[in-house]
Design a protein around this nucleic acid. Sequence first.
DNA 1: CTCGAATATACATTGACAGGAATATTCCAA
DNA 2: TTGGAATATTCCTGTCAATGTATATTCGAG
Lengths: 111, 111
Amino acid sequence: MNSILSALAEPNRLHIVELLRDGPLTVGEIADRLGLHQPQASKHLRVLSEAGLVEMQPVANRRIYRLRPQPLMELDAWLSSFRRIWEERFDRLDEYLLELQKSEQKHDDKP
Amino acid sequence: MNSILSALAEPNRLHIVELLRDGPLTVGEIADRLGLHQPQASKHLRVLSEAGLVEMQPVANRRIYRLRPQPLMELDAWLSSFRRIWEERFDRLDEYLLELQKSEQKHDDKP
DNA sequence: CTCGAATATACATTGACAGGAATATTCCAA
DNA sequence: TTGGAATATTCCTGTCAATGTATATTCGAG
């Protein structure tokens, strides 16, 4: 989960993932479209690969990279655990304020 | 989108967000549960706040932090644009290989 | 088997960021 | 009004990661 997020947190890598959403690409094409030097593209792809976000298939000289769905599905699953927050609109703030107040009173009690 | 991801990429901050999923908390409680010193907790909360992931409400001495749904909804929307990839299971790899091959041939043509 | 294209790796440099410690600020209670 | 609790801010330092440059590797064409 963490390696996925930090992989996506880098703007160029996020952009790569968005590029690959429309289909596989070679390293050179990715570097071209992002205006990156080839070594940086390779390095970013390595990080994405280690996070499981992409996989590579060699074809002669080229390396074709494509998306792997699993990490994005994981992210989706994680997100879904928050979904009730904006669906049920359940803040628990007032509840929490009451608890705070209670603990104040408890603190004031002289046993 | 980027500030959201880089905010969540830090393990302690991700943990804070998960804590707040169950309801609002004060800075001190967050620091306690994560085993952080108070200043680091405040700093992480500042980053989360700037990313719009949390909001704060002062109550006397304390600051109560709670989740804001919007950024997570944005992330969800972004993810959903990838959903067809693992639903339709459409790789486009063979398609892409054909294109590669065609461009090879085009390169070979003697006009 | 040699050349050039495509890609990966190594190395050095620089900048961002997380953690620690100290300090400032705000608020309530006595 | 003084003291202490809760929180934010500042400064310093070390570490990590992104970039640029150079080099190694692999492959097909001729």
